[in-house]
């Protein structure tokens, strides 16, 4: 009974933060690039496409993390604690993916610098 979940190393906890860290990174990058683009008067099309590329790249990154989290070891070998962390991490990835989509997708259609 003392061995349950013992195989789960403490560094696995960082994965809880991974998905939303990408979300935060997307926010910071998009916000900064948008500001720089507006200050240096990039052409509206170029600015928008830059933002779209950054947006999609982060979406892909969260998606990749999600797949990676979903494919981790599961079942009896991982123990109750391992399975718990597995499910929770996977759902933070799903949540981060949805958050990335909803937070950064729609705004990219708007007027660039007003």
């Amino acid at each position: 009974m003392n061995a349950r979940g013992h195989s789960v190393p403490a560094r696995r906890l960082w994965w809880l933060a991974a998905g939303f860290t990408v979300w935060c990174n997307a926010l910071v990058l998009l916000y900064a690039l948008h500001a720089i683009g507006c200050v240096f008067a990039w052409p509206a099309g170029a600015l928008r496409w830059t933002l779209v590329v950054v947006f999609v790249a982060h979406l892909v990154a969260v998606g990749w993390l999600w797949r990676k989290a979903a494919s981790a070891e599961r079942g009896a070998a991982a123990g109750d604690t391992g399975n718990f962390l597995q499910v929770v991490i996977e759902w933070t990835m799903i949540a981060a993916f949805a958050a990335t989509l909803v937070t950064f997708g729609p705004p990219l259609w708007l007027t660039a610098c007003l």
Partner: peptide, 14 residues
């Protein structure tokens, strides 16, 4: 600019 505000608006809603 409104575009930048929109990130934070959508975030605040979700």
């Amino acid at each position: 600019p409104h575009l930048a505000l929109a990130f934070f608006s959508a975030g605040s809603a979700i």
